[in-house]
């Protein structure tokens, strides 16, 4: 019998190794798996590469993982948010590597990894500083840069409801990167507001099919 629901952070995060690439959902705090990220501090994996649209704020969630010195490198599109103090400090101290890339390029690179695509050309960043050093080809009169897939060893994401088979539905714009990171990693771990049995979610509205999800942990939503 398949039951992807786990009951503790230890079970949810078991086996994440040092040096892993971790894909993280969320746009700002909406959809960010804050509790999983904090539990990863206790789990102990280090030397991590984190892919996340933003680079954490305050001292919680991703910022707490960075503060604990576990993140070697962060790939993101927008590290500046109100209260993004930890990434500022670590970067100024030379303690974290920062790679900034266009938001749609990060998203599409993960989708390419999920879809078995070896690379793709896009107009985004062609002729700019962020496109420098990338192979460039002209299609239909416009320069395009070559982008390679971005695959995760692990994806951490937050959804609204997960069922026994790992099917997921989301809440409004907290969906954001969740479905993409879920598809693009070898081990996908979802924290959800509630879990249900198989068959309880309307199959017409399932956003992430369970094939992409390995573990589901219920974490009550913060007020």
């Amino acid at each position: 019998m398949i039951d992807k629901r786990v009951t503790s952070f230890e079970q949810a995060l078991a086996g994440i190794e040092d040096g892993s690439t971790i894909l993280v959902s969320g746009f700002g705090n909406a959809g960010s798996p804050i509790e999983l990220l904090e539990a990863l501090v206790d789990q102990g994996a280090r030397d991590l590469t984190v892919v996340s649209n933003n680079a954490g704020e305050g001292e919680f969630g991703l910022a707490a993982l960075m503060r604990a010195g576990r993140v070697r490198k962060i790939i993101c599109s927008y590290p500046i948010t109100s209260g993004s103090v930890v990434v500022d400090e670590l970067h100024a101290a030379g303690k974290i590597e920062l790679e900034v890339a266009p938001q749609g390029t990060i998203s599409e690179r993960m989708r390419a990894a999920a879809a078995g695509i070896g690379g793709f050309y896009t107009r985004t960043s062609a002729g700019t500083r962020l496109g420098e050093g990338k192979e460039t080809r002209e299609f239909d009169g416009h320069p395009h840069v070559l982008e390679r897939p971005l695959k995760g060893d692990v994806a951490l994401l937050r959804a609204k409801t997960g069922d026994r088979w790992g099917n997921l539905v989301y809440n409004m714009t907290a969906r954001n990167f969740g479905p993409t990171v879920a598809m693009a990693a070898d081990l996908t771990i979802a924290q959800v507001d509630e879990t249900v049995d198989a068959g309880e979610l309307d199959p017409e509205i399932i956003v992430t099919p369970g094939i992409f999800v390995d573990r589901v942990l219920r974490v009550p939503r913060r007020a």
Binding site: H91, P102, T124
Partner: peptide, 15 residues
């Protein structure tokens, strides 16, 4: 003096 941050600007402008 802030960290570089591009967000979706390049995607919107190019696409």
């Amino acid at each position: 003096k802030r960290l570089p941050a591009v967000g979706g600007a390049m995607d919107l402008a190019a696409g």
